[in-house]
Amino acid sequence: MNDWNDLRLVLAVHRASSLTSAAARLNVDHSTAFRRLKALETRLGMRLFERLSGGIYQATEAGLRMACAAERMEDEALALDRALTGHDHRLSGRLRVTSSETLAYSRLTRHLAAFRQAHPGVVVELATDNRVLNLSRREADVALRPVRPREADLWGRRLAQVAWGFYAAPAYLAEQGGPVPSLDALASHRLIGWEYGTMSIQAAEWLARMAPQDAFVYRSNSLVNQLVAARSGIGLALLPCYLGDSDHGVVRALPQPVSDLEGELWIVAHTDLKGTARVRAFFDVVGDGLSRERELFEGRGGASPPQSWTQSMQY
Results as ranks from 00 to 15, higher is better:
R150E: 15
E151V: 09
E151Y: 11
D153C: 12
L154M: 13
W155M: 11
G156N: 04
R157F: 15
L159Y: 07
L159E: 03
A160K: 04
G165P: 02
G165S: 02
Y167P: 03
A168K: 05
A168E: 09
A171D: 00
A171E: 06
A171G: 00
Y172K: 04
A174Q: 07
E175K: 06
E175L: 12
G177Y: 01
G178T: 01
G178D: 06
G178I: 11
G178F: 04
P179W: 09
S182G: 04
S182A: 07
L183K: 04
L183E: 13
D184N: 12
A187I: 06
S188Y: 03
S188F: 03
H189R: 04
H189C: 08
G193T: 04
W194N: 05
W194D: 10
Y196L: 10
Y196N: 06
S200P: 02
I201D: 11
I201A: 15
A204F: 02
A204Q: 00
E205Y: 08
W206F: 02
Q213M: 12
D214K: 00
V217D: 11
V217M: 12
R219L: 11
N221F: 03
S222I: 06
N225Q: 08
N225R: 08
N225S: 05
Q226S: 11
V228G: 04
A229T: 07
A229P: 10
R231Q: 15
R231G: 11
S232L: 12
G233Y: 11
G233R: 03
L236I: 10
L236R: 08
L236N: 09
A237E: 02
P240T: 11
Y242T: 07
Y242L: 08
G244M: 13
G244N: 10
D245M: 07
D245P: 10
G249W: 13
A253F: 13
Q256N: 13
Q256F: 13
P257F: 09
P257E: 06
V258C: 13
V258S: 09
G263D: 07
G263T: 09
L265H: 15
H270Q: 07
T271F: 02
L273D: 15
G275T: 00
T276S: 14
A277D: 04
A277V: 09
A277Y: 03
A277T: 02
R278H: 14
R278I: 03
V279S: 01
R280I: 01
R280P: 06
